[in-house]
């Protein structure tokens, strides 16, 4: 059982590791400038010169794919980070203090959850100008409730453990107990939620950019590229295929990681 979890975790680690490595290298160097148009290369087929061919503007698809995966990864990681940090604070305060703080903050959280999340994201994007940072903001907001709920429950549990009582008795201040003693103990419980959240973020970015409200042209992201590629499904099937595979690998890696971590904080 544990062995199987370990293997799943390791597979996730390898896939995610390779993707990350490519993305990091891509941040500094890609075979071509991802946005550089080259009339001569227009619709070039996959070759050693253009590993995945070139698109309708003669831009190198492989270079765009690497850069696009980086953009998607950044959006996903940043929005999960926003949800995580604010979720930790809100969940920590509500779980620790209870009472009216709990009532007020959790009602706000509930009201966020009451809307279908993609709808809420679209509304937010409609209010805000579209672009990378506003997607991050919108998605981050959507992630707050799930993190806050888990943290709140876990803090309420830890609050009654003897080490917390002991700290209280020693005269440690509430804030120090919460942020220095309890929250670090809550983080391991959140790891699998982080991985799931990351995958939701990748998919949401892809759908939003696909719908044209996300990352704006000419900048690539996996969602943007998918929407561009669909126009050429028949003439250049490798375009859509490679973008699809990149999305799948990104999600698969984190999915395996989260499954490997699932349920058992010690895994």
């Amino acid at each position: 059982m544990i062995d199987k979890k370990n293997k799943t975790f390791r597979a996730g680690l390898i896939i995610t590791g390779i993707m990350l490595l490519i993305i990091i290298i891509g941040a500094f160097w890609t075979p071509y400038d991802p946005n550089a148009m080259n009339g001569a290369a227009k619709w070039a087929k996959p070759s050693f010169e253009h590993l995945l061919g070139a698109d309708n503007f003669g831009r190198d698809i492989f270079s765009r794919l690497v850069e696009g995966a980086g953009a998607t990864f950044f959006i996903a990681a940043a929005s999960v980070a926003i949800g995580l940090v604010i979720g930790l604070v809100i969940g920590g305060l509500t779980g620790w203090f209870g009472g009216w703080i709990d009532e007020v903050l959790m009602r706000i959280i509930d009201s966020i959850t009451a809307f279908p999340s993609i709808l809420l994201a679209l509304v937010l994007i409609a209010i805000l100008p579209s672009g990378k940072y506003n997607i991050i903001l919108a998605l981050g907001l959507l992630f707050i409730p799930s993190f806050a709920r888990i943290v709140r429950m876990e803090v309420a549990k830890q609050k009654n453990l003897d080490y917390v009582r002991n700290a209280k008795l020693m005269g440690v201040s509430d804030m120090r107990i919460l942020f220095v003693h309890i929250l670090p103990n809550v983080v391991p419980v959140l790891l699998s939620t982080v991985a799931i959240g990351f995958n939701n973020a990748v998919l949401s970015e892809a759908s939003m950019s696909y719908l044209g409200v996300g990352v704006q042209p000419p900048d690539p992201s996996l969602g943007r590229m998918l929407s561009e590629a669909q126009n050429y499904l028949l003439s250049a099937p490798w375009y859509a295929l490679s973008v699809g595979i990149a999305i799948i690998l990104l999600i698969l890696g984190f999915g395996l990681l989260s499954e490997g971590l699932g349920g058992d904080g010690n895994a």
Binding site: N166, L169, G171
Partner: peptide, 20 residues
């Protein structure tokens, strides 16, 4: 409290912070 009263708990498994 911290100065004049100390306490020893029943469960040594949970009376110390596992991450400190």
């Amino acid at each position: 409290h911290g100065k004049d009263i100390g306490m020893v708990f029943q469960e040594p498994m949970t009376s110390l912070n596992p991450l400190m």
